[in-house]
């Protein structure tokens, strides 16, 4: 068979397109090592802004809070996404269409509408019961878990589609009950997909501004909320340092997630 000749325009557009995606990332990383007091000005290699970040208590608290939140939300999202994805791809039942449709809403509807809707729910619950459920970590975990759940479900569905159902059928033929089949056969086979789903839900939560701004009060600011409010004022070298650390950390997690799930970790549901 004749191999297609590599066309120059294809190579040019590929590298131009990929460079476009990486220019801002490279800018952040390079200028995080600048000694200048304004971001984007180069005045010799220096780690001074890394030390400045280490001394900043507000940022340290916000970072720890966001890490805890992301871990909790990703765990809830993974449990729910696994149940939803498994039901959608292995079972035929009434309500399947409803489940699939509701799962699609957080993916397709702009987040600003979803974030607003979450807050209305917590306000309504507080108004009806008088319980202060709309404060602190709880509404954030619920909101972020709901946003992460469809992503996990789509990773689970993609993994189950490539998984031969005869493993599970064999276990059932040998007399195992459904729960036992799930725990001893399905779950171990799903482990890499679940790990990548968890990591993707984690990064979604760790980067979220809009939903957090609606459901968390200003007294409970997450790291992205803090970054967002300082970025509105202007660029600062400390933000470049923070960006470098976040981008490095997230890139590492996502690379692990993508290697684990063999290319299913794409943003399309």
């Amino acid at each position: 068979m004749r191999r297609p000749r590599p066309a120059y325009w294809r190579i040019v557009s590929l590298y131009a397109g990929l460079s476009f995606l990486y220019v801002p990332i490279v800018w952040i990383v390079i200028y995080s090592f600048s000694g200048a007091t304004t971001a984007g000005v180069w005045r010799g290699f220096s780690l001074q802004w890394y030390w400045a970040l280490a001394d900043n208590d507000t940022l340290r608290i916000a970072t720890l809070r966001s890490l805890l939140l992301a871990a909790l939300a990703a765990t809830v999202a993974t449990a729910l996404g696994l149940a939803a994805g498994h039901a959608l791809s292995r079972r035929r039942f009434r309500g399947r269409y409803v489940l699939g449709g509701l799962l699609a809403i957080p993916l397709f509807v702009p987040e600003i509408l979803i974030g607003f809707a979450f807050l209305m729910l917590f306000v309504a619950i507080e108004g009806l019961t008088g319980l202060a459920v709309g404060k602190g970590l709880l509404p954030l975990v619920v909101g972020h878990a709901t946003l992460g759940m469809p992503v996990v479900a789509s990773v689970v569905v993609a993994r189950l589609a490539g998984l031969d159902p005869s493993y599970e059928e064999a276990a059932m033929d040998l007399g195992a009950r459904p729960l036992r089949v799930f725990l001893t056969v399905t779950l171990p086979l799903m482990a890499p997909a679940l790990a990548s789903g968890w990591l993707l839900a984690f990064t979604l939560s760790f980067d979220d501004v809009i939903t957090s701004s609606f459901v968390a009060g200003p007294s409970f600011a997450t790291l992205p909320m803090y970054i967002y409010s300082s970025v509105r004022v202007g660029v600062s070298p400390v933000i470049n340092v923070l960006g470098t650390l976040i981008i490095g950390g997230v890139a590492l997690l996502v690379t692990i997630a993508m290697l684990g799930s063999r290319g299913v970790a794409d943003p399309c549901p």
């Binding site: 990332i25 952040i28 970054i227 976040i246 981008i247 943003p267």
Partner: peptide, 14 residues
């Protein structure tokens, strides 16, 4: 895909 998952906020800031 990698940039897509890498802090949307930081990339906008850049």
């Amino acid at each position: 895909i990698l940039p897509f998952w890498t802090s949307f906020l930081m990339r906008t800031y850049a």
